[in-house]
Measured scan of single mutants.
Amino acid sequence: VRQEELAAARAALHDLMTGKRVATVQKDGRRVEFTATSVSDLKKYIAELEVQTGM
């Protein structure tokens, strides 16, 4: 499950970095929206997932 969450989070980051205004991911069973202003929060979430998956 964590691998899927990590892939979704990375895709969301890619979307935001390429101009999409809002990206949505499932985080702990709930839907979370990230915007360009919350990229740093999304990067932290990705880092947490990488630690949890041993990457």
Results as ranks from 00 to 15, higher is better:
Gly54Leu: 05
Gly19Arg: 02
Tyr45Lys: 03
Gln26Asp: 10
Lys44Gln: 11
Leu42Ser: 00
Glu4His: 12
Leu49Ser: 01
Leu16Asp: 01
Val39Gln: 05
Leu16Trp: 02
Ala9Met: 07
Glu48Trp: 15
Ala47Arg: 10
Thr53Cys: 10
Glu5Val: 08
Thr18Arg: 10
Gln52Tyr: 08
Gly19Pro: 01
Leu49Ile: 05
Val1Tyr: 10
Glu4Pro: 08
Met17Glu: 12
Arg2Tyr: 13
Ala47Pro: 00
Gln3Ser: 13
Val32Gln: 07
Leu49Val: 03
Glu33Ser: 06
Arg31Lys: 15
Leu49Cys: 01
Ser38Cys: 10
Gly54Tyr: 02
His14Ser: 08
Glu4Leu: 12
Thr53Ala: 14
Val1Phe: 12
Ala9His: 03
Gln26Thr: 14
Glu33Gln: 08
Val25Gly: 03
Arg30Thr: 11
Ser40Met: 08
Thr37Gly: 11
Ser38Pro: 01
Gly19Leu: 00
Leu13His: 02
Thr24Pro: 05
Leu49Gln: 01
Arg30Ser: 10
Val51Pro: 04
Asp28Ser: 06
Val39Lys: 04
Ala11Leu: 09
Val32Lys: 06
Gly29Met: 04
Thr24Met: 08
Ser40Asn: 15
Val25Ser: 03
Ala11Ile: 09
Leu49Ala: 02
Lys44His: 08
Gly54His: 10
Ala7Glu: 11
Ala23Gln: 03
Thr37Arg: 05
Lys44Glu: 12
Glu50Ala: 06
Gln26Pro: 07
Val22Ala: 09
Ile46Asn: 00
Arg31Gln: 14
Leu13Cys: 05
Met55His: 13
Thr37His: 11
Glu50Thr: 06
Leu42Asp: 01
Thr18His: 14
Val22His: 08
Glu50Gly: 04
Thr18Ala: 12
Ala36Arg: 09
Phe34Glu: 03
Ala7Met: 11
Leu42Asn: 00
Thr35Trp: 08
Leu42Val: 02
Ala8Ile: 11
Ala11Val: 08
Leu13Thr: 00
Glu5Ile: 10
Glu33Cys: 09
Gln52Lys: 13
Lys20Glu: 08
Thr35Tyr: 11
Asp28Tyr: 01
Leu42Phe: 01
Gln52Trp: 07
Arg21Lys: 14
Ala11Thr: 09
Leu16Phe: 02
Glu5Asn: 07
Val32Asp: 04
Arg2Ala: 13
Ala36Tyr: 11
Ala12Cys: 03
Thr37Ile: 09
Val51Ser: 14
Lys20Phe: 04
Ile46Met: 02
Asp28Glu: 09
Met55Glu: 13
Lys44Gly: 06
Val39Thr: 05
Leu6Lys: 02
Glu48Lys: 06
Leu42Trp: 01
Thr53Gly: 11
Glu48Cys: 10
Met55Tyr: 03
Thr37Trp: 04
Gln52Phe: 08
Ser38His: 10
Asp15Trp: 03
Lys20Trp: 01
Thr35Gln: 07
Thr53Gln: 12
Arg31Ile: 15
Arg30Cys: 10
Arg21Ile: 14
